[in-house]
Write a protein that binds this DNA or RNA. Structure first.
Lengths: 206, 206, 206, 206
DNA sequence: AATGAATGAGCGTTCATTCAT
DNA sequence: GATGAATGAACGCTCATTCAT
């Protein structure tokens, strides 16, 4: 599909779908390896073992692949928040949510850092991220609001704002831990601290 | 540093110093306006009313001016943490520190966002930032540690880690608030929430 | 031409002939719409509702379709010149020939402009056009020569050259009229002027 | 001047002016040699003996140099029309104007052909050309109108339209003569024919 | 015959940095 | 020191054509 007007993208054949998938996988790996800014389209195609031009058969720009790679990743991360199955008590539930998020974050550590990078200059991407963030924070906020109604959490804080702040604390602490070398020793300490701070910040009975 | 031909070195004449200062001021304004990546050296020189080539008389690279602009800014921000003068009680002290930081942050809002941008791809800058952060967090940590010794804060958390996490919460919440449009209505609510969460997270008596 | 594997050759099956015809029709429409340079092979195939690759089953290159589209068009235009049926007098005959040409030209206005475009850079096409032009001018020239022999047209001009110049006047005036927006109001005035100038230039009795 | 936002162009120093001139001269030669479409920016810079990037110091695009080359050329051609100094009689005046134009045209033969090329696809350029043409035709038209008032030219034709048609005849006949190999033998015959046809078309006394 | 994916040379443009004046 | 021109590697994207199915 040598151009034309549409940036097209969706392959019609099995073979095309395979190539597209190869490109997506390669893109992710290269992005993780070099960051968005240092990634060249050649790097991706070389890594995927396809011709240079084939990239543009499936993606109109470098940004476009990134967006899609990130989108898939967001899907995977989506399940954090305070949702996972009811547990013994609220504090434990916070801890478990943190842990789930932690694991997902670490699984995608490099990409999470690159996502942070792109978010600093690409508006379209910023928006995508804001949305994912908002839905995730919204879920936490609803849980907190319920706890407030149940008298487990003081009512003098705004559930939404608090959920956002705590999510940010967890999220960005992990980010910094990653970009600053991911000292494996520090991981457990960090995680425990985040758990404890979250629980206490909400005033939950430990 | 008795270097013989330090390029981009400090200016020796009065006039040179003025030009350099003009460039620094212009650089900051342009960076704020367009971000680091979108800033061209011409933008800076044009804004400073200086010849294109003169830029390289004072700075070896675009990164170099940025580093210096950021460095000055870090100085100004340095005084946050839990230090400012003793107050009625620990909780108030946290609140005041937050407020001080908040004001400094907002005063430099745009640059703070750009700093975030550069930190995502420039290692040298990442290091500079890490240091400033470390010293700032260190100071908070020492205060927290003292409180722990005084029995005001539970000892089951690591002071350094906690200080870092809370700083991150405040810092990055403000950052997100800025890049997402700085809704003026939300500011006070956000700030109060951050204060309350910080205080409760540390277990300080309110 | 008993070639064994004439690529892009004439289709053998009924179905092939239809596809080829669809492509030719689509090509003409797209060329008219976008010009030769801005036409992509995709545009043609998409417009024809045919697979991309099928284009190359019938035409070796983009130039090739154009050549064929133009060739058909030339056929249609061929009948201008001073030939059409004898009329009341020479002046009227000129007028009628002009009118016939106008109509054909206007019917194919867009393509005529595109042909002009391609003629400026494609040598093969230039030659094709030169031939058509030559035969058309030749016919006019023969009529003029006869009129010269009959004393209706002064003999101090070269029939061939004059025929060419007048054809050019008519042809290119129409072309300019088209590319400059085809003001419908100006059409009649232009045509009448061209008629009068042609008749007087040849010195024909009005 | 390594970019920025302005496409700038005007050099501030003597040296810059020289380079710019070198580029313009080289551009013209290369355009004449290869046509607009086949000209690469490298060709121009190589020919001018300057660095590739220097081209963009003075011209924002390939189109831009072309526009300027053509503009200069139009200046030179401007003096055709029926203006040059009063002569013995109208017919002679037409002949002299034709001759003057003829010489200018031939002096710039190659460029005239390239201009035709660019006019077929570049709207901005089409407009530039239309303007030059209009002013040139306007001048001729005014002369013809006067002759009509003086009874030298029949009043049944529209001066403007006639001037345009005859200019087109001369202009495009020369163009075709050039692109079809410029047979030197044919030049004189062509010229004389154009003169005679112009004079007679206007009905001027010979 | 038909389909649509694969190919890759090619080109315009950018812009940090260096240099001549 | 100041000025502004010169440099050229680098990169994203296009699209006619070829190929595998």
């Amino acid at each position: 599909m040598p151009s034309g007007d549409d940036p097209g993208g969706r392959p019609l054949t099995e073979r095309g779908a395979r190539t597209r998938e190869r490109l997506l996988a390669a893109a992710r790996e290269v992005f993780e390896e070099r960051g968005f800014l240092e990634t060249r389209v050649t790097h991706i195609t070389r890594h995927a073992g396809v011709a240079y031009g084939s990239f543009y058969t499936y993606f109109p720009t470098k940004e476009a692949v990134f967006l899609e790679v990130a989108d898939r990743l967001f899907e995977e991360m989506t399940d954090h928040a305070l949702v996972p199955s009811a547990g013994p008590g609220p504090a434990d539930r916070v801890r478990r949510a943190n842990r789930a998020y932690y694991e997902a974050y670490l699984r995608n550590a490099r990409m999470m850092a690159i996502i942070e990078q792109v978010a600093t200059f690409n508006e379209e991407f910023q928006e995508l991220r804001r949305k994912h963030r908002a839905s995730s924070v919204g879920r936490s906020a609803r849980v907190i609001a319920r706890w407030q109604r149940e008298g487990l959490v003081p009512s003098d804080i705004d559930a939404e704002t608090a959920a956002g702040a705590l999510a940010t604390m967890v999220d960005h602490s992990l980010y910094l831990w990653i970009v600053q070398g991911s000292d494996p020793r520090g991981a457990e300490r960090l995680l425990e601290t985040l758990d404890t701070l979250s629980v206490r910040a909400l005033g939950l009975p430990d």
